[in-house]
């Protein structure tokens, strides 16, 4: 459970705050709390609350650290999907009613409203259906020097189009990051494949796929 998220507190965050408040937060070490993912163990040991008084003129603030803790059950479909990722496999389900392949999988079809229990494995190649060059993170005021390419990948052979038009009704596609291609070259329709972490590094997470990279034929 330790290496799930790479997000870290950014010092730039404090720039948006009033100077006095920023100083107060730093003096009390509260800045270290922001945006930092900790292991369950250390977060359970965290002090229950911290109250501070901070005054500018007549303003009083009470600092309250909301420590909500959840363990999200992945469920039948996502559990099998995540276990598949750990083994370097992309697993999905196929609805026998409408024929759609669902990746990530569901055990029910929201179109047919029927149970789904047919599982399929996909080799992982697909096309970029939409993408964005992202210069911002979830920390306010953070700006990346080099953009992150975030894309939706449609897996080969899963795209269903309307008979009479080019409208895509469904495609099995996941949102992920794209690397190994410059911001100028990435494009809709580019063929990509998953780049896996080493087997011993995989934990059963969407991050077991490090990123998607262009297929050699497309570079």
């Amino acid at each position: 459970m330790t290496r799930a998220t790479p997000s870290r507190f950014s010092p730039n965050y404090l720039q948006q705050l009033p100077e006095d408040l920023a100083r107060y937060i730093q003096r009390h070490g509260l800045d270290k709390e922001f945006g930092r993912l900790e292991s369950w163990a250390s977060s359970m040991e965290k002090r229950y609350m911290e109250i501070g008084e901070w005054q500018i003129d007549n303003l009083v603030l009470t600092y309250w650290h909301i420590a909500c803790m959840y363990r999200h059950t992945a469920g039948a479909a996502f559990s099998r999907f995540l276990k598949g990722l750990k083994n370097g496999k992309i697993l999905g389900t196929r609805c026998e009613g409408c024929g759609r392949v669902l990746i990530p999988p569901r055990t029910f079809c929201e179109w047919c409203f029927k149970d789904i229990d047919t599982w399929v494995e996909h080799p992982g190649a697909g096309i970029i259906s939409t993408y964005s060059l992202s210069y911002i993170g979830t920390d306010p005021r953070v700006r990346f020097e080099k953009p992150v390419i975030v894309a939706v990948v449609w897996f080969d052979g899963t795209v269903k189009k309307a008979n009479s038009s080019r409208t895509v009704l469904h495609a099995a596609g996941i949102l992920h990051k794209v690397q190994g291609v410059g911001p100028e070259e990435v494009h809709v329709g580019m063929r990509v494949k998953p780049v896996w972490r080493k087997p011993e590094e995989r934990v059963g997470s969407i991050l077991d796929i490090e990123y998607f990279a262009p297929l050699e034929s497309d570079v």
Binding site: A74, G75, A76, A77, F78, S79
Partner: peptide, 12 residues
Amino acid sequence: IYDDMDFREMLY
């Protein structure tokens, strides 16, 4: 506890 279903599967 329902460990084998997420909330979507439970609601379904």
